[in-house]
Each structure stands twice: as structure tokens, then as C-alpha cells.
Design a protein around this nucleic acid. Structure first.
Lengths: 337, 337
DNA sequence: CGTGATTTTGCACACCTATGCAAAGCCACG
DNA sequence: CGTGGCTTTGCATAGGTGTGCAAAATCACG
């Protein structure tokens, strides 16, 4: 185990002081001459600055804490992968924190502490299921936070979501235009802003169009709950279902077709939300509102980096619109094909 | 921004030296009396040891570098989530590194350097697609490495996989027992040990049973390639397909049913590999060989932690057997129902 | 060449904890 | 009470970098 090569070694070889080496590598001012000498020596010795020592002294780790709760919904792995890439490009790295199943306050506190311990420069809260306590405590710790795919009214926190109300409204218009009269809604978890907003936008537009909603059942973003909700709504004789996210929509479709023997969209139209890759698979061919993950991630990264580098920057609230993707799981209105 | 509370602050308040504080928190010997005083003072001040300073001096960061390439295959998010949990339980954290699409040597080198920069204590290479160069360089850097779901013969590296040859063999037996006579194989990428092993085990057992294989096409773990392979094999009149992983199997099934109008398992039986959660969804109901993710992850974590804590520990090669899960995508032999 | 303005450089210290070493404390036993 | 063995404690330093400050070097200009 050969000892690490330090800035002193480079300094000695280049015939300058250690601080000169430091300055060259941290981008501070240095004359062309010394800069060249230093780089050459560093190259020869294979020197790389020690990130830990640097972080210790600057108080900035160039690490982003990423809190996720449930990667079973394919929307999140997709986002995570993009986050990792984007942050890498910005010179940051991604430390993943996973919240246990039934995350209590104890767990939340532990996670926060661990993030503080590692002196993360910023935090992405990427799960709808995270308690407000977490966000509040991050904020209190003075670390920039951006909520991803999750809002929190009046929190003053930066947040990036898709235009959930608008998205819900689009679905309402689409289903009504399709001639559906008995429309039901398997809602996303109503404890989450994302779930609530989609539901609100959907119901509001439905009302504006003079349509009743046959029923709203909270699917809690859960497979089994979604199935239960489907049973309830089918019993009321729905001819269309708006499901709070794609992941639940798959469960709903499976149940409709296999257990209940219904045709999609013959008997029931189904519309989802997210447009995860799987939604395009032929087995589901799901009509759904696209969340533009790519742009959402970019916006989140930009907002976070901005806050990190300029602490006075105020938290932005970003909503990104996404189109309704027409596929085969829902009857398509005349003239839209 | 209030200054961090350091071990000196705690020491002052507790009336002991800084080293006493350090010893209490690093688990070294200390008398009950001082230990109590220190803990009390720490509690009162809200002290937590600075991980960076600790890492700097001990040379151990308690961070694991996790290299993944493609989270689109749901097997990996599942694994990642479990890794994160398991490592958290062991007091480690997970730094995620994402390999760009067409990862060249330049990218590889950059990733390695970044991991070295952060002084990760260990590395999990969790993708079949990673070049050997990466593994070799990690090894050379003297950092413990474990290959997850990926082998490399003669590399001397620790590795954890499922029993891929055996799994392939099980599928062969199952399909033959089911009375299939024109069996084809959409193989996993033959550049990966995982893909090769499954194929070898499958073909070998098929031969032992006196069955020909109608054809083997490399699906490269890719959606489009799998579809292409399916076309080729269907043209040769297959009545059963063994597909190298579930992710491709979904594409194959979609194509068989939607584009080619074939019934599963009426016209063609399909068997996959992995048993990702989606395989159980009614739309696919895929018969497949289960990779026991939970146990594989635990084994990987154990092996890595073991290597980290005892550098002389030699690299183990672990193969974990998984059962064939019978579902509806393939004809079930008499007497097995 | 002299002088002031500006850039570059080196010194020394800070960041915060772990740990080797020696001194001090404790205990038991004769 | 004295002595030896063992545990506990404090001192001082290392780990590798960034940065304020003052000295030195460079530059521009009269």
C-alpha cells in the first residue's frame, strides 16, 4: 500500500510551495509559469487532490443527498439515473438514502443526521411519500432542498413538479370528449400534493364540463389498494377510469381484464399518469399524461445547484407541462385520431 | 450560520480532554464516568462527530461506490434499493455512479478516478455491461470489489450471481417435459458471463435430453434486438422460447401477441429469467427463473464488508440457486400443476 | 531608473478527529 | 504502606487541503 501523493510532493517536485499547488487545483489565480510547472509535476506523480481534506476545510462536499422511498414505481429509477448523470456533469455526486417501508419520525431523523454528518451540499427529496418533517428539518439545517415530484404549499421550499392540476384537467376533457358518462377515479395518495393536485384538476374540469364523477377512491399508490378501489368503482358501473399514476394503472388494467373479464377500452377506458417506459409496452398500451422526466430533472438540478452556489437565491417553484399521450387503453374521441 | 460544534466544545463542557471525547465516540476504551459525562455534554450541545475529519485521518470513508449502467431493467432498481438499505444497516452509504450509454475507456477512467477521489471503501459493480477494464482498475487500486450479477472467470475478483447454468438447465428440462419440440432461445448478451452461462446451461441440458435447439439469437438485453431475434426464430417455427431475461421477455411477448398475433402459451411458450416484480403481473404472467435478489444482495454486502474489514480475506465466488416460478406463459407439464 | 499599483507567492494556521506515547490513576496483594 | 500490573487520561501530532496576510515580484508609467 503505497502512500498517497500529496500536494507537498507535487510542490517539492515543481519547486514551489504547497499553497501554489493548492491554488492551481482550486482554480485561484496563479501565473502561467507556476501553473505549468505544477501541472507537469502533478501529472508525473499522478497527483489528485484529496477530496476529503478539501471538503473538510471548505465545508462543501460536492455531494448531493438523494432521498427516495420506493423504487418499485419505475418513474423513480428513471429519474434517479438521470439525476446521477446530471449531477456528475455538474461535478457533484449522489449519495442515496432509502427510507424504510413504514418510515417513522425516528427513521427520518436518522436519515437527516446521516446527511448532515456527510455534509451534503444539497438535498433532493424524491418521493411523494416523505413526511413534511423531513423537509422542515432539512430546511432548518440550512441545507438547500428541492422537492422533486412533490409540492408543499407555503413551505417556502423549492419544488419541481409537472403541471398536475392541468394534467388532471386534460384527462377530464379527454374522457368527456370520448363520450364517457360514468367516469371514476382511482386517485393517487391524497396525503401527497401530487395525488391531490391531479385529483383536484380532474374533478374541477369534470364539473366545469357538467359531468359527475361516479366515485373517487384513494389508491394510495399501492398495488393492492388500487385493485380494491377498482372493485368499488366497477361495482358502481364505470365506463372510464382515471388512475393516479401508471404504476397503479397497470394493476387496475390487470384486474379489469383478468379478474373481472372486462375489455379495455371496450368496456372501460383507462388513463394513467407518468408515461413510464412500460406504458408504451403493447400489453398495456396505456394512454397517459407524460411527466417530462428529463426536463424535470434538469430543472431540479439547476435549481439546487443555483441555491448551493448562491445561498441568497430564493426557492423557485417550477411546474412543467406534459402532453397527454394517446394510446390504446382509452377510447379516442372523434377527430383526434 | 452557526459554527459546527466540535469535540473540543464537548470536551470543555464535560471537563475532559478532546481525545477523551474522540475515544467515547469511536468506541475505544473509556471509563464509565467520563463516558457518561461526555455523552451528556454531547447530547446537550447536539454534537455529532465530523465524518469528513474522521475519514481523512482513518482513511476509511464508510462509503461504497456503486456502479450501475442501466436502471431500465427493473431488476437493478430493486437491487439498488436493497443495497442501499443493507449498507445503511452496516453503517455504510451508497454513492451511485452511472455509466453513460456507450461507455468508453475514457468514461471508465473518469469514474474510477472519482471513486478514488472519494476514497470509497469498497465497490459494487452491478451491471453486466461493464467492461473488464473497470474491474481490473479497481482491483489495481487496492479497493475491494464485488461483482454483482456478473462473473469474470479467472479474475480473482469476488462475485455473486445466481446459479445461471443451473437455471438455464432447469428451463431446458421444463420445456422438454412440456412436450415442446421446436425450442428457440433469445439469449442474453453473449458478451456477459450471465448471458453466456444461462445459454450454456440451457443448451447443454437440451442436448443431454436429446433435443435440438431451433436457433439461438443474441438479444443483447435490448428491446429492439429482442424483437428482431423473435422474428428470426418465429420464422423457423418455434413452439417455445427461452428468453435471457424478463425485461426482454416482455418485449418478446408483446411482439408475439400484438404484432404476430400468436397465443401464449397456445402457439408459443415463453420462459424468462429474473422474476422481476412485473413478471407476476397478469398481463404477462411470466414463467421465469427467480433470481433471489434479497439473498444475492445480502451475500454481496457480506462479502464486501468482509473484504473491507479483513483485507486478507480472499475473494469468494458465490452462486445462489433460484427456483423456476411456474406461471401462465408456458405450457405446464403433466403432473406438475 | 524610481515609484506606486497590481499580481503572485510563501508562510502559517485552520479545519476536526484519531491515535501513539508517556504520565497518572487505580487495584490488589504481600 | 510499598510495589507491580492494568486501565484511563491528556498531550501532542498527523492527516491533506484552502486561505488571510504580508512580503516579494512584476508591471506600467512618468
Amino acid at each position: 500500500m503505497t502512500r498517497r501523493v500529496t500536494s507537498f510532493d507535487v510542490a517539492a517536485r515543481a519547486g514551489v510551495s504547497q499553497s501554489a499547488v493548492s491554488r492551481v487545483f482550486s482554480g485561484a489565480s496563479a501565473s502561467k509559469a507556476t501553473s505549468d510547472k505544477v501541472r507537469e509535476a502533478a501529472e508525473a506523480l499522478g497527483y489528485r487532490p484529496n477530496v476529503l481534506a478539501r471538503s473538510l476545510i471548505t465545508g462543501r462536499s460536492r455531494i448531493i443527498g438523494m432521498v427516495v422511498a420506493y423504487l418499485g414505481n419505475p418513474f423513480y429509477p428513471d429519474a434517479l439515473e438521470r439525476f446521477s448523470r446530471e449531477f456528475q456533469d455538474e461535478g457533484y455526486h449522489t449519495l442515496v438514502f432509502t427510507l424504510p417501508e413504514g418510515a417513522g419520525d425516528t427513521d427520518t431523523d436518522r436519515i437527516i443526521q446521516q446527511m448532515l454528518d456527510h455534509q451534503v451540499d444539497g438535498i433532493v427529496l424524491a418521493s411523494v411519500g416523505l413526511g413534511d418533517a423531513l423537509a422542515a428539518r432539512c430546511e432548518a439545517a440550512g441545507i438547500p432542498v428541492v422537492l422533486f415530484n412533490r409540492g408543499q404549499a407555503g413551505s417556502g421550499l423549492a419544488q419541481v413538479t409537472s403541471a398536475n392540476r392541468l394534467g388532471g384537467a386534460k384527462v377530464a376533457e379527454f374522457l368527456v370528449a370520448g363520450g364517457h358518462t360514468r367516469i371514476g377515479h382511482v386517485a393517487g395518495w391524497q396525503g401527497s400534493s401530487t395525488g391531490r393536485d391531479r385529483t383536484e384538476g380532474f374533478l374541477a374540469r369534470l364539473a366545469e364540463l357538467g359531468q359527475d364523477c361516479v366515485g373517487v377512491e384513494d389508491g394510495r399508490y399501492d398495488h393492492a389498494e388500487a385493485v380494491r378501489a377498482t372493485d368499488v368503482l366497477v361495482a358502481r358501473g364505470v365506463d372510464a377510469l382515471f388512475v393516479g399514476n401508471d404504476h397503479m394503472a397497470f394493476a387496475v388494467m390487470d384486474h379489469l381484464r383478468s379478474a373481472l373479464g372486462l375489455k379495455i377500452p371496450g368496456d372501460v377506458s383507462v388513463v394513467g399518469y407518468d408515461d413510464v417506459p412500460m406504458a408504451g409496452f403493447a400489453a398495456y398500451d396505456l394512454t397517459t399524461v407524460r411527466q417530462p422526466v428529463g426536463r424535470m430533472v434538469k430543472a431540479t438540478v439547476a435549481a439546487l445547484v443555483n441555491q448551493i452556489e448562491d445561498k441568497s437565491a430564493q426557492a423557485e417553484v417550477t411546474e412543467i407541462d406534459g402532453p397527454l399521450i394517446l394510446r390504446g387503453s382509452a377510447r379516442i374521441p372523434e377527430g383526434l385520431a
